[in-house]
Design a protein around this nucleic acid. Structure first.
Length: 879
DNA sequence: CTAATTTGCAA
DNA sequence: TATTGCAAATTAG
């Protein structure tokens, strides 16, 4: 088999990549799109062509002989934009880490280097592929040299060899130079013969051969053409010289220097990590970390016969790494298959029946437990009446604090990211979806090896992350808040909330009657049956058939959202019906049916998952089901809250913070007027209205209050005049005046907004009161829209995030106090600014007291925190 | 079957 | 061209 040499035109490709891809940035604000595109091409070339030799040619800044001969050469080209320039050096580093050689020579363009190298080696019986976006390179094609031209962005390559050129253009590769002489090249500012383009040029060359031949035969051409040629004689031959790629540069390149070397995995990992190319990280074929494979592994199966040795070791070491693997099943009776504990270089394995033997170790606060997603382990142990204690370091949470923007960070991604070795991802090991393996199917030896890797990696990551958390001054946030919160959330999931299936069933019946009536009405208006749930079909009916005015479009067609329907409601009676239909079907499918599906048959309760590592701001999120978006605003939806109840002889105590975000704003901006508004204990929107619209408190109308409320919301979200005008349906100019008036009354709020944006721009991140960070790469974007988003994020995140910090502290304090006072009350829900406790009736008063005190005293701010408390048998009753 | 799109619910 | 989430239904590939 012949060997293959691939030569890449680096400048051409990096430009293509830059302009073809959208703006990408890492969290430091460094642009990475060109590097990303280029790297993707590299991966593709390596996979598809598997070349023996690979080299990438770059231009250097120095002028070439072409500039000296013709000062117009490429003179009209704009310099490289800074967003691209800053990517060149990192790209070269990346190429080096790939083990790919680079060719750069002063005084010659990449084309010349490519031409020379190609010609030298095609004579040595090597196949040469030249990859570029520049058609000039076609002159280099031969029967053994192929030109691969990028087309349409960078995703596809067109392959040309000598024969393909002949077929398509009818001329030889060398005649391409003559063609350039005739037609010139706009992109390089090569003039050619004005008035001759590709069509005429090709015809002339087809008829006569070369540029010289064309001139010799000019007499047989039409008068006009002859004149053009004669007037531009010098220019034509200059153009031909400029377009000629040098193939005999005085350089010697040893083929061996172009040989593809081994990748420098460590360096590549570090680079991809810096660029935040998480998807590419997994593409790197890693060799197992030598340290891991050289370590001697010792698996010790522990049962009652050899328990003592384990306990001595655990007590001595004081730090263990744990992971439980469990069968699928009910939260209260989920069976642990094996519990793995790593201590130093030993891996201990406990089968289900033996886990209880080490209850004392697991509950010993003095023995530190580290792991990945320890909430899961905590919950798994609860049915065995083991309450995991001494939880010390959770790698998933560590990563969340280091960078809250990360998405689906499983252990395998993290270990690559931090260079902590290579490990199979959960999906790779267990399979996913239908082919997910049952624990029983996996040979024990394999399982053991997998968990060894998991715990080994966990330990390494812990060691890597700990200093990062320290550096970023997040130790307090991590150890005093997030880690202790694991158990609070675990308990909330484990306890769940009682639901009334009978109420759900009634609602289902009631709703389906309404829905079918509405369907009939809608079909009678539309004159045909269609799927009302399909925006496409609904759009067709409303805007094509009924010819209602189009208010808004989406990228795929007409918009039919609530706002649009609201605008159309007077135009046709069908609109009101559709709005109602939407309301009912939403409640039916998402809530009535959704919740029914997920009631735990065992407990009669709903056990939602509370995730601690999802949101960018520090909030908690809830899934399966999401209990943080149960309807409340509309009468109809609010009914659903009757489903959520307390168990027998208990009561729900519901406490929610009053205006926590605006209070946080008052504190961090230290705005006297805003602080004073809160201290007077009057409705904050009314107070704002009075200030902004310059009326006495008593004279604030409903309308003014509601406008002020919108302004307050806008302020919290990072205000823009456009956004506010949109929200209030007023002109941008008026919205602008509102904002200016607000800032005039609350000058320190204005100062805070300016400062936090500035701070975000210089540091690349913003922080909450407790030091939680969010990186905002958007803020250094050149794109106005993206940058504006960045500014709003900078303004909003500290507010929303600080409120999240505060309620987390409150949750901890409430949880701890309930335990300390040995109550049977339980914290069961958190909805961002609201906590719900299920309390036995005789604990109602103390539960109220605890919630009130702990929430209002969670932190000390320049304004009082206020919590409003209600109680009742159902969530509906607490509002 | 999966991914993207549209819609709508909460704080 | 207003912040943060989750989920259902439809539809394109």
């Amino acid at each position: 088999m012949r060997e293959l040499l691939v030569i890449i035109d680096g400048n051409s490709l990096v430009n293509r990549a830059f302009y073809a891809l959208p703006e990408l940035m890492n969290k430091k604000g460094q642009h990475t799109n060109a590097i990303y595109g280029f790297t993707n091409i590299l991966f593709r070339i390596l996979e598809e062509y598997n070349p023996t030799y690979l080299t990438i040619a770059f231009d250097l800044k120095a002028p070439t002989f072409r500039h000296k001969e013709y000062e117009g050469y490429k003179s009209h080209r704009k310099g490289m934009p800074n967003e691209l320039r800053e990517q060149i050096e990192p790209l070269k580093k990346t190429i080096d880490a790939f083990g790919i050689s680079r060719l750069e020579l002063e005084g010659y363009e990449a084309d010349d280097i490519i031409g020379t190298v190609a010609k030298v080696y095609e004579k040595q019986n090597i196949d040469v592929y030249i990859i570029t976006g520049d058609k000039d390179a076609l002159q280099l094609a031969s029967d053994t040299t192929k030109i691969l031209l990028t087309k349409k962005g960078i995703s596809e390559l067109d392959i040309y060899d000598e024969k393909a050129l002949k077929d398509q253009y009818g001329i030889t590769p060398l005649q391409f130079i003559d063609l350039k002489g005739l037609m010139g090249d706009k992109s390089d500012n090569i003039p050619g013969v004005p008035g001759i383009g590709e069509k005429t040029g090709l015809k002339l060359l087809l008829d006569y051969g070369s540029l010289e031949d064309v001139y010799e035969n000019r007499d047989s051409l039409s008068a006009g053409l002859k004149k053009k040629l004669e007037e531009n004689y010098d220019q034509a031959f200059l153009s031909k010289r400029l377009a000629t790629i040098v193939t005999d540069m005085p350089i010697e390149i040893d083929l061996n220097e172009l040989r593809l070397r081994e990748k420098n995995i460590e360096e590549l990992c570090a680079l991809f990590n810096e660029f935040e190319f998480n998807t590419l990280l997994s593409k790197i074929k890693t060799t197992p970390n030598p340290e891991i494979i050289s370590r001697e592994m010792k698996l010790i199966k522990v049962d009652k016969d050899n328990l003592e040795a384990f306990k001595i070791s655990a007590n001595k070491s004081k730090e263990i790494f744990i992971k439980a693997s469990a069968h699928k099943g009910n939260i209260r009776h989920r069976k642990i298959s094996s519990l793995f504990i790593k201590i130093d270089d030993k891996l201990y394995l406990f089968k289900e029946d033996d886990v209880i033997l080490i209850k004392d170790i697991l509950e010993d606060e003095g023995i530190k437990k580290s792991g990945f997603d320890l909430k899961q382990d905590y919950i798994l142990l609860l049915p065995y009446e083991i309450e995991l204690d001494g939880i010390y370091f959770d790698v998933e949470i560590g990563e969340y604090l280091i960078d809250s923007s990360g998405t689906n960070n499983d252990l395998s991604i993290l270990s690559k990211k931090y260079g902590a070795g290579d490990i199979k991802s959960k999906e790779d090991f267990f399979g996913k979806g239908k082919s997910e393996k049952n624990l029983m199917e996996i040979p024990e030896q394999e399982l053991f090896l997998y968990y060894w890797d998991v715990l080994e990696t966990t330990e390494r990551l812990k060691d890597i992350m700990m200093p990062l958390i320290k550096e970023n001054e997040m130790e307090n946030l991590f150890f005093e808040i997030e880690i202790p919160l694991i158990k609070v959330l675990g308990d909330m999931e484990y306890h769940g909330i009682m639901v009334r299936k009978d109420v759900l069933d009634n609602l289902k019946e009631k709703f389906s009657i309404e829905i079918s009536l509405l369907e009939k009405d809608i079909y009678s208006y539309s004159g045909e049956e269609f799927n009302i749930n399909s925006p496409k079909q609904l759009g067709h009916i409303l805007f094509d058939k009924l010819e209602l005015p189009v208010i808004k479009k989406t990228k795929t067609g007409y918009s039919t959202n609530a706002e649009v329907l609201e605008a159309l409601k007077e135009k046709h009676p069908i609109i009101g019906k559709i709005t109602l239909y939407r309301q009912y079907t939403k409640l039916q499918s998402t809530y009535v049916e959704g919740l029914s599906k997920i009631i735990n048959p065992d407990t009669g309760r709903i056990h939602s998952s509370f995730n601690q590592t999802i949101t960018t701001t520090g909030r908690i999120s809830s899934t399966d089901p999401n209990l943080q978006n149960i309807p409340v605003r509309l009468e109809l939806g609010r009914e659903l809250r009757k489903v959520f109840v307390s168990k027998e002889e208990s009561i729900l105590v519901d406490a929610d913070y009053s205006q926590i975000e605006l209070r946080v704003l008052a504190h961090i901006s230290d705005d006297k007027n805003l602080i004073e508004a809160f201290s007077k204990n009057i409705d904050i929107h009314t107070a704002t209205a009075s200030e902004v619209f310059n009326v006495a408190i008593e004279d604030v109308t409903k309308e003014l209050r509601s406008a002020a409320k919108a302004v307050n919301f806008g302020i919290v979200y990072g205000i823009s005049d456009f956004g506010l005008s949109n929200n209030l349906g007023i002109p941008v100019k008026i919205a602008k005046e509102y904002i200016e008036s607000y800032f005039a009354k609350y000058p320190n709020v204005k100062k805070y907004m300016e400062d936090v944006v500035k701070d975000g721009e210089t540091k690349g991140y913003v922080s909450t009161l407790l030091g939680r960070r969010r990186y905002i790469p958007e803020i250094s974007s050149k794109n106005f829209v993206v940058k504006s988003l960045g500014k709003r994020l900078a303004m909003n995140t500290p507010i929303q995030g600080t409120a999240a910090d505060i309620i987390k502290i409150a949750m901890l304090k409430v949880w701890q106090r309930i335990r300390k006072e040995k109550l049977e009350s339980r914290l069961i829900l958190q909805v961002h600014d609201e906590l719900i406790v299920e309390a036995p009736e005789n604990e109602k008063e103390i539960a109220i007291k605890i919630l009130k005190e702990e929430m209002e005293n969670a932190v000390k701010l320049n304004v009082q925190l206020k919590a409003d408390i209600e109680s009742g048998k159902s969530w509906f009753d607490t509002k």
